[in-house]
Amino acid sequence: MAGWTTDEMSRLDGETVVVTGANSGLGFEATRAFASKGATVVMACRSVDRGADAADQIRSDAGGEVDGALDVRECDLASLTSVASFAKGLADDYDAVDTLCNNAGVMAIPRRETEDGFETQLGVNHLGHFALTCRLFPLLVAADGVDDARVVTQSSGAHERGEMDFSDLNWEESYDKWGAYGRSKLANLHFAYELQRRIDAAADALGVRSVACHPGYAATNLQLRTAEESGTPLAAVVMRVANAVFGQDATTGALPLLYAATGDVDGGAYVEPGGLLNMRGAPTVGRSNDASYDLDDARRLWEFSVEATGVDLSL
């Protein structure tokens, strides 16, 4: 795996890959890579217009066309209705999904709520992806490739500052924007690992594996949006400097997700950058913090998520 790059990705002709947040940052770079290998990439975007612009950019950069196909569709993870509509449309038009990349997210924003009344970071980063995965799971099971279908869930090194306080998951008592982000990223890991445990426990072989990853410090517009949301002009300046000095580019930051989606990794693996402090460099299989492997917290979060979204897997 040393020095792994997209040059080592296998061809994906005939495969369907769904990427949330595909119009910018890591999702954009992952979409470009999947399409260059021949996949049909369903670009699940909150804004169809921005998604279409991103697809046009990928085609333009490739000389007018890509090896695969780009299918832009609306999917607002802050709306369970939008998630359900997206999943139905996909089931109507596709027989199977080979890879689902739960990539989109928001980071350290002021407290607000989703359309369904969830604290936004938990609602978008975890609950929206939980509902999406559950709704698309029959399409993942239906995939008939040479390898298992995969669910890849993007977490963050910030999961280490997360805490699953089940008495106030929605931060109604008090709110810490970075604590809420850390919790949502810890929730991503609980979900990814618990999904694999449930797949393993199923009576029949399902042909699906769940893998988690994190990009390290990748300089994307996610940090800049966080700075803008702070309302402090200095924050944007500091974030730009930090991105320039410490961040790696989005192309490199997307490598853990791409390796988790296409590389030789087991279900339940955690793929991260292998360089300095696991914040930079080529992807490697590592280990998230001890809290992320807490079985009771994972079970409780799953039960909460089922009740909150009204969606569950039937394995």
Rank of each mutant, 00 (worst) to 15 (best):
E272S: 01
A44H: 04
W178V: 04
V238D: 01
A236M: 10
G310H: 10
A35E: 05
S314I: 07
A104G: 02
I199R: 08
T252N: 08
R225T: 03
Y94E: 07
V265I: 07
S60C: 11
E65D: 12
A261Y: 03
L277I: 05
R209Y: 08
V241P: 03
P256T: 04
G157M: 15
A108H: 05
F34E: 09
E113W: 00
V271C: 06
R197P: 03
F28E: 03
V66N: 01
V83T: 13
R225A: 05
A78G: 15
A39T: 06
R112P: 00
L26G: 05
G275L: 01
F34P: 10
S155Q: 10
A142Q: 11
F86D: 01
A143M: 08
G179I: 09
R32E: 14
Y193P: 03
D200S: 10
D56E: 14
T220D: 07
G207F: 07
G117Q: 09
S47E: 04
F304L: 13
P233E: 06
I109C: 12
V208G: 02
V285D: 00
I199Q: 09
V48I: 12
G179S: 09
G51S: 05
D56C: 01
V66E: 01
A260G: 12
A242W: 02
A227P: 01
E172T: 14
R59M: 12
V42E: 08
R32W: 07
T40V: 06
L186D: 12
D147H: 10
E163K: 14
A44E: 07
T31S: 15
A55I: 08
T16V: 15
G253N: 10
L127R: 15
V237W: 09
A227F: 06
L234G: 15
G275H: 01
Y270W: 04
E160T: 14
V72N: 04
G21N: 07
T262R: 08
G253I: 07
A180W: 08
G157K: 07
D98N: 11
P273W: 02
T99R: 14
N188M: 06
D98V: 00
E74R: 15
D116R: 01
K185P: 01
D71T: 02
L258C: 08
A192D: 04
F246A: 10
A55H: 05
I199C: 09
D93Y: 00
M164T: 07
L122V: 09
F304R: 13
L295K: 09
H214A: 05
M279N: 09
V48Q: 02
D13K: 13
A260C: 13
P215Y: 09
T262L: 10
A108I: 06
V311I: 11
S24P: 00
A261D: 02
D165R: 12
L90T: 15
Q248D: 09
A180P: 11
V42S: 07
L276V: 13
K88G: 03
G275N: 01
G63Q: 03
R135E: 07
E15L: 11
K177M: 09
L313Q: 11
T226G: 15
A291F: 00
V306C: 14
T309C: 13
G105D: 03
S82E: 12
F130V: 10
L222E: 02
N125A: 01
M239W: 10
E74I: 07
H214W: 08
R209S: 15
L139E: 11
G51V: 10
L132F: 11
A254R: 13
M164V: 06
D294E: 06
L140W: 02
A69D: 14
A205V: 08
C213D: 13
F34D: 10
S60N: 12
S174W: 01
D13F: 12
